[in-house]
């Protein structure tokens, strides 16, 4: 789609005289030629647009290494019939919303702390941000050891204060939440930095005026910081939802969807079905993920753009 557009436009710009609706474009050649789009458009079209559109077709087929057969909506029916696939579907929402929510809360708290005048501020910012840059698989393996039910540091420390810690990754009711917790640990640094950028952009005069009028630090936060940091908050929510809903690396490194399939999400289901050779079912998973992500992100995006247009 994009590429034909480019071609047509390229042709148009070469013969501007023949376009009656744009007579004022008398320049022979634009300084900003449309063919600048072509390399990116070719890649984007072949490796992103085509597969995305193809996934809609393949999701309606039974497709293995050897043959491909059209079966209508059977894959989707199966997706919402088999408990392990439904679980992955539900878990995607849980994981996405929990990580996004906690990143907002902790990110904002850390940002307020790290934009105030405290010692070692620069060092602390680096410390909080660094996990963002570390290999996700490395983080996953590290926490798998730290969360070991018997010898892991977390349960050893809890035992020290007399608490009997659960099997964070082996207990079905905790596994997904434990992975979500690690995802928050890993990603909160980015949220913090975005919030800091938002807080720094608030003019100091507001706080000075409010403090002169006798506002407490909490009132400052509630009535000045929180409303004015909204653009940053929207960025954090959107980014962490996009990342959280399609999250795969960390879950795969920590639990591989286990125990059983209690911490599976759509992205890991897609991989498992792919590995098992059910390519049609795997594509159906992709379509489901596509719909889920779009249905959640687009309304938020639209809402944000409308707000911007209002101002």
């Amino acid at each position: 789609m994009a590429i034909t557009t480019e071609r047509r436009l390229a042709r148009q710009s070469k013969r501007p005289g023949r376009l009656p609706e744009k007579p004022r474009k008398s320049r022979q050649k634009s300084q900003y030629p449309m063919w600048f789009y072509i390399p990116a458009a070719v890649l984007f079209f072949t490796l992103f647009v085509v597969p995305t559109i193809a996934s809609f077709y393949f999701s309606l087929t039974r497709w293995s290494l050897f043959d491909i057969e059209f079966i209508g909506f059977d894959n989707f029916a199966q997706f919402f019939r088999e408990p392990m696939l439904i679980q992955g579907f539900v878990n995607t929402f849980i994981f996405g919303f929990i990580t996004s929510g906690l990143k907002v809360v902790f990110g904002l708290l850390l940002a307020v702390l790290l934009s105030s005048q405290i010692m070692g501020r620069t060092f602390l910012r680096s410390v909080v941000f660094f996990p963002v840059l570390v290999s996700v698989v490395g983080v996953g393996i590290t926490f798998r050891v730290l969360m070991d039910p018997f010898d892991g540091l977390i349960n050893t420390a809890l035992a020290g204060i007399g608490v009997d810690g659960p099997g964070w990754l082996t207990d079905p009711s905790y596994a997904l939440l434990s992975v979500a917790f690690v995802e928050v640990w890993r990603g909160v640094g980015l949220a913090t930095l975005i919030f800091i950028a938002g807080i720094v952009a608030i003019p100091d005069e507001y706080f000075e005026a409010a403090t002169t009028d006798g506002a407490s630090p909490f009132q400052n936060f509630w009535h000045i910081t929180l409303p004015l940091v909204r653009p940053a908050m929207v960025t954090v929510v959107i980014l962490s939802l996009i990342g959280g809903l399609r999250s795969f690396d960390l879950i795969w490194a920590m639990t591989r969807g286990g125990p059983g399939f209690t911490s599976d999400v759509i992205a890991s289901v897609i991989f498992k079905q792919y590995q098992a050779g059910f390519y049609g079912l795997s594509s159906a998973g992709n379509v489901v993920l596509f719909v889920v992500v779009t249905a959640i992100i687009v309304p938020i995006f639209w809402f944000l753009n409308r707000k911007e247009a209002d101002q």
């Binding site: 072949t46 490796l47 393949f58 596509f290």
Partner: peptide, 17 residues
């Protein structure tokens, strides 16, 4: 924006490749 939001379809991408 679509490229930013939409998760890539894995198996069809392999098919194209």
């Amino acid at each position: 924006l679509a490229g930013l939001i939409i998760p890539p379809a894995v198996v069809p991408t392999i098919w194209v490749l």
